[in-house]
């Protein structure tokens, strides 16, 4: 048994094997592995005795349950209107320029993935972004360069 299988077995034991326990189990996997892989979905389907298609359907419904491999740090830039009006474009340029990747891509070293997200609820402090669970608001290109610079120096 590999670590994903063990993790899923543990989660299933913890939450139960009913269909309604699917979501916390997926969340548990994403918490550990940063995303939910095809392999993990199949393991969950087996564990809960449910169709793999439905695990995929459920996971893909939620924006924060990524099913493609993500970098160690997932940057989510708000794409909704309040942030857009306060210059998301410039923020995006700064990030892409610094990390040399485009939206949806991961840096070759596997450290960062850049994504867009719907409203984060920080419209009053737009523009906003998330790096993993941390929120950054009132962004400007300089702020972004500062923040990313720090993260780039950080070890994982």
């Amino acid at each position: 048994m590999n670590s994903t299988q063990t993790l899923i077995k543990d989660l299933a034991r913890q939450y139960g094997r009913d269909r309604r326990n699917l979501l916390p189990i997926i969340q548990g996997v994403v918490e550990q592995e940063n995303y939910i892989s095809e392999f993990a979905m199949i393991e969950i389907a087996k564990e809960l005795n449910m169709p793999a298609s439905d695990v995929f359907g459920t996971a893909s419904f939620y924006s924060f349950l990524e099913h493609r491999k993500m970098g160690f740090y997932v940057i989510r830039v708000c794409k909704t209107i309040a942030c857009a009006m306060k210059g998301t474009n410039q923020i995006m340029h700064a990030i892409e320029d610094m990390l040399k990747v485009k939206i949806g891509e991961t840096t070759p070293d596997g450290k960062f993935t850049v994504l867009q997200t719907n409203c984060l609820g920080w419209c009053h402090k737009a523009p906003a972004m998330l790096i993993n669970d941390e929120v950054f608001t009132d962004l400007s290109p300089e702020r972004v360069r500062e923040i990313l610079g720090e993260y780039m120096r950080k070890n994982r």
Binding site: E38, M41, V55, F56, G57, F61, H67
Partner: peptide
Amino acid sequence: GVNALTVAYKGSEMKISTFF
């Protein structure tokens, strides 16, 4: 009872999909 098809994604991106 085959469940080859499912509803994936949401909103304007919602689509009928197979596993992955």
